[in-house]
Design a protein around this nucleic acid. Structure first.
Lengths: 195, 195
DNA sequence: CTTCCATCTGACCGATCGGTCAGGGTCTGA
DNA sequence: TCAGACCCTGACCGATCGGTCAGATGGAAG
């Protein structure tokens, strides 16, 4: 019988993800994580420089996708920006349900950490795009409600398959977003378009 | 000059509300609250049995309103339930911005405390009503997104006056909620077509 | 003045937190 | 056989947490 290489690093990461989503970052101690993995707290700190680094590595993939979405958004305006923002964020939220659920609620404090330095600005731009770059309160409010609500929903509906959740959220987003006056500049043509 | 009676009890309550909204319940220590009030930590614990009791007293008014909304909802179905739920929750969220902001994010852990024993059930019923008591995933998801998003928005847009915020949120809620078969008082624009 | 009570405080407690450190196994390649 | 890299651990550290307690203060009542 092939004894699998004990991937302690990965196990710690997975255990941390599970616990952070339930108890939150603050509410989860390194001891808790170590207990679930079945190792000592010192082992956790052997694999990760500190608690913050553990969180950072956990979030890295999601953050990378968020960053690329931010790049896609540059230059877009009005309805085009809204559509790309909605589609991109729903996709991201569904794909990284667990990671999003961790950030939820502890957003403001976690953002102080250097690893998440630019997330605040990025999510502000995302929210702005979702509002069609309008400064009307109604549009701004709708954009915030959507971003926060979608984040929450992804953590909650773990039982619903990805495709169904994505479709429902996207439909909801399109219906909820304040329509901007400006017509779509030109329907997404051969520009770099997602699948 | 009449030296005002130092309402330490109230000052502690107010300071706690401010800090909880910023740093969260877990993230705020009794020391922090005492420092802002300008008294000792022991004084805080003289006025409140413990940290949990402080939170409970802070939340009491909001919880009372939530409970009465829950009563209004009993027996209502379909579009009527949706409208009452939307209107009632938006009103509650706007009126108790600060309190709602405290619960946001630390919901699951805080609900374990006996003072908030029935809140989970109440908010579940509220969500169910907002979904028009439909069991379609789309409706359930929309209801959750709205409840979570509205809670978040109220904490965020402290600069927007109550009336404006209430109107914007209610408009958003009516537009976002999945329409149930029963006729609506305010029929949505016919350009929206759903299955 | 004495008594009483509400208010407030500094000192202290045990528990737990994130994090450090010296050292013990185990495997591998020279 | 032995050196060294890698993985892991128990013991320990200072800081901070929520909470306790004996006592100081000060005003009102007798």
């Amino acid at each position: 019988m092939v004894r699998a290489v004990p991937d302690t690093h990965g196990e710690i990461l997975a255990a941390a993800a599970r616990q952070f989503t339930v108890t939150g970052y603050r509410g989860t101690s390194l001891q808790d994580i170590a207990r679930e993995v079945g190792c000592s707290k010192a082992t956790v700190l052997y694999h990760f420089a500190n608690k913050e680094a553990l969180l950072a590595e956990l979030m890295a993939p999601a953050i990378e996708v968020l960053r690329s979405l931010d790049e896609q958004l540059t230059g877009l305006t009005g309805a085009a920006a809204q559509e790309v923002a909605a589609q991109g964020f729903v996709d991201l939220a569904v794909r990284f349900r667990q990671e999003i659920a961790v950030l939820r609620g502890e957003f403001p404090e976690l953002l102080c950490q250097p690893a998440f330095a630019h997330i605040q600005e990025i999510s502000d731009r995302l929210r702005d795009a979702l509002a069609g770059h309008s400064d009307r309160p109604g549009a701004r409010i709708a954009a915030l409600v959507l971003l926060a609500g979608i984040s929450e929903a992804c953590g909650e509906f773990a039982d619903i398959p990805d495709d169904e959740l994505r479709l429902a959220l996207l439909t909801l987003a399109r219906r909820a977003v304040e329509p901007v006056d400006a017509p779509l500049p030109h329907p997404p043509t051969t520009e770099d378009k997602d699948s």
